[in-house]
């Protein structure tokens, strides 16, 4: 009996302890500060990019940046600053990547969600996702030392650094992303819909293309958009295998520099802080940031807006 009383007293005593009350009050504040770091990060990114971009545009005009086609930032006598060659490099490499990633990613998703037995899906899916876990530097190495030489056998005019090879490799890197997001979208199409179509005598192929894909289309398109965004932001593969020629061309057998590769070149070069070349980093970074952010927001928007209600 007395022991029980002691427990009660002990609890009472602890209750009155100011320290624990203080802790209860402080914890949410501390945790909020942790959560706030992510907001500070965003502010930091937007802030630095904007600030230095403004400094850049004091020295270089908008028209030069967006309408001319010459880029030679480190030219000591007559530096030129146009983003168009970089945009071209980014667009061409991303286009090639999506030419690979969209058909293969989507058909992989169709196979996994509509054809594969649950056992083979359990094996195949994680194996494909391994592709997404390989560091991009490894893909860059592979594109440069293997894919390019192999492609040169087929296309002799292919330069040692070119857009084609990293584009293809980047596409393969993005396959798991497109496949797994598309498959998620297809899996959320209820089975009753498949049953309805199969009961009418449709083949699995017809079920996939006439019922499941149309029903899951918003999620599928979102996966494409996220894939493109990923390709635009990818750095190491294009830096290594596409070279640093500031080339305004559609010829993918040539070396072309992307926005990301430009940032790498200038940061690892000798452009000291305060030079125009240094500020140009941020103008290019800003363009890159805006592009990818818009794409990501667009992907979120279409999945939310067009979510099917079954």
């Amino acid at each position: 009996m007395s022991e029980r009383l002691n427990v009660k007293e002990a609890i009472q005593a602890k209750r009155k302890n100011n320290k624990s009350v203080f802790v209860e009050k402080m914890v949410p504040v501390i945790l909020f500060l942790a959560a706030f770091i992510s907001i500070i990060t965003t502010i930091g990114i937007v802030g630095t990019l904007t600030y230095e971009t403004i400094l850049f545009f004091r020295e270089v005009s908008f028209t030069e940046f967006f309408t001319t086609t010459d880029l030679s930032p480190l030219n000591p006598t007559d530096p030129k600053f146009s983003i168009l060659p970089l945009l071209m490099g980014t667009v061409m490499s991303s286009l090639i990547a999506m030419f690979v990633a969209i058909p293969i990613g989507l058909t992989t998703a169709v196979y996994l969600s509509e054809y594969a037995s649950s056992n083979s899906r359990k094996v195949l899916k994680p194996m494909i996702e391994v592709l997404a876990g390989i560091p991009t530097i490894v893909y860059g190495f592979f594109a440069f030392t293997f894919v390019t030489p192999v492609l040169q056998e087929v296309i002799p005019i292919l330069d040692r650094t070119n857009v084609l090879s990293p584009g293809i490799v980047m596409g393969i890197m993005i396959i798991p992303m497109v496949a797994s997001l598309s498959e998620d979208a297809m899996n959320s199409v209820p089975n009753s819909m498949r049953e309805g179509a199969l009961a009418l005598g449709a083949t699995p192929l017809e079920v996939a293309f006439r019922v499941v894909i149309p029903a899951a289309i918003s999620g599928i398109i979102a996966s494409f958009v996220l894939g493109i965004s990923r390709a635009i932001g990818e750095t190491m593969i294009v830096t290594i295998a596409s070279g640093s020629t500031k080339n305004f061309t559609f010829d993918v057998t040539q070396s072309m520099q992307t926005m990301t590769a430009y940032i790498v070149e200038v940061t690892s070069g000798d452009a000291g802080a305060g030079t125009t070349a240094y500020f140009s980093l941020y103008a290019v970074g800003m363009t890159l940031f805006v592009f990818t952010l818009l794409m990501n927001m667009f992907a979120t928007y279409i999945t939310r807006r067009f979510r099917e209600v079954y």
């Binding site: 959560a35 990301t260 980093l281 890159l288």
Partner: peptide, 23 residues
């Protein structure tokens, strides 16, 4: 905060590099 975090996840790593370089 949630949207902010998911947007940060989509920012290219090289842009984080620029942030690190500056800050």
């Amino acid at each position: 905060i949630q949207t902010n975090i998911s947007n940060l996840a989509g920012v290219p790593s090289i842009v984080f590099g620029l942030l690190g370089l500056t800050v």
